[in-house]
Simulated assay, not measured.
Amino acid sequence: MKNEARLAAPAGPVLFFDSGLGGLTVLREARYLLPYERLLYVADDAAFPIGRWPEADLKARLLSLFEGLIAAHRPKAVVIACNTAFTLVGDALRKAHPQVPFVGTVPAIKPAAERTSSGLISVLATPGTVRRAYTRGLIDSFAGQCHVRLVGSDTLAELAEHHMRGDAVSDEDLLAEISDCFVERDGRRTDIVVLACTHYPLLANRFRKIAPWPVDWLDPAEAIARQLVRVLGSAAAEEPAQAPDSAIFTSAPKDPVLERLLAGFGLVLINDRVVRRRGT
């Protein structure tokens, strides 16, 4: 019955959502595993950074935006490649759109707790993810025997956007955002940092160079892509898509730098009036 339900799903693209460029890390992993799927990337950059929004306002915005996206594009599945968005509206979206499978992104606290040797874990996230009860619940459920430090950054997602666009981002600015992740206690050190925002893996190589000691920077992108494969099941495309993969940004930018960056991920930047109208 589950496979039949999936086969009856709309034959549209797999939709990836984030507030900016971070979800591209998830889309890249998904393309490796699902090379024939048509992919649509949607960035609510008009609201970026969404971690600073009041929860009630952000929830209303996201629910309205997805109503328009799902009606216009009839996605086969939706990947919410944003911890802040999914932990806030994931349940509500599943209730509002039961015909669409949703794959979410949550802080990778469970695998971190399973891998740590020192028992000292840090979760590097946006302020919205840090203060959400969902995150605390993950810690209570899966990392009760560990010391987990939550580190909220106001600017790291923005620094990642600047880095991806080729703007200068100093080591000093990055170190100021990640330094609180490194804890020493009773001769033990933090050995895993959970990257609980899809923007942060874009800076992982920089983090490795400036970190005070080596740690495992836990990137959830591959695990999310594998979950998408499981959700699609036998409904996964087996032949190349006829339409190109595309990207929509709610601010409707006309930015040659962005267009070149997206082309590197195999995406064509397009405009969508429905999304722009709801993303204002």
Rank of each mutant, 00 (worst) to 15 (best):
L63N: 06
L39K: 14
A9Y: 09
F66T: 02
A56P: 09
P54S: 14
K59W: 00
A43Y: 09
A5E: 14
K76N: 02
R61D: 01
V26D: 08
T25K: 10
P13G: 03
V78W: 03
L15A: 09
P54T: 12
A47R: 14
P10Y: 05
V78Y: 07
D44S: 14
A56I: 11
A60C: 06
A77W: 03
R28N: 12
F48I: 10
L24D: 07
I70E: 01
V78P: 09
R52S: 14
F16T: 01
I70D: 01
V79E: 00
F66M: 08
L40R: 12
F16P: 01
Y41D: 05
V14C: 07
L34C: 11
A56W: 09
F16K: 04
R74P: 01
T25M: 11
F48E: 05
K59I: 01
W53C: 10
A71C: 03
G23W: 09
E29N: 07
P49Q: 11
G12W: 03
R74W: 01
V14D: 07
A9P: 04
A30G: 12
G51W: 10
Y36M: 15
R6K: 08
L21Y: 07
P75W: 02
R61M: 05
A30V: 08
E55L: 12
L58C: 09
L15I: 00
L65K: 03
G51H: 11
W53I: 13
R31N: 11
S64E: 14
L24V: 02
A71N: 08
R38G: 08
L62E: 01
P49W: 13
A43R: 07
Y36P: 12
A43F: 15
I70T: 00
L27K: 07
E29I: 04
G23L: 08
G68R: 03
F17E: 02
V78C: 13
A60Y: 08
R52K: 13
D45N: 15
E55Q: 15
P35L: 08
D44F: 06
Y36S: 15
C82I: 00
K76T: 00
D57K: 14
V42G: 02
E29T: 10
E37I: 05
P13T: 00
A5Y: 11
P35W: 12
Y32D: 06
P75R: 04
I80N: 02
R74S: 07
D18L: 06
F16D: 04
A43C: 14
A5M: 08
A43W: 05
P54F: 13
A47Q: 13
P35H: 10
L33D: 06
S19F: 12
R31G: 12
K59V: 04
L39P: 07
I70L: 08
G20F: 07
L24C: 11
A56N: 13
P49T: 04
A46G: 13
K59M: 10
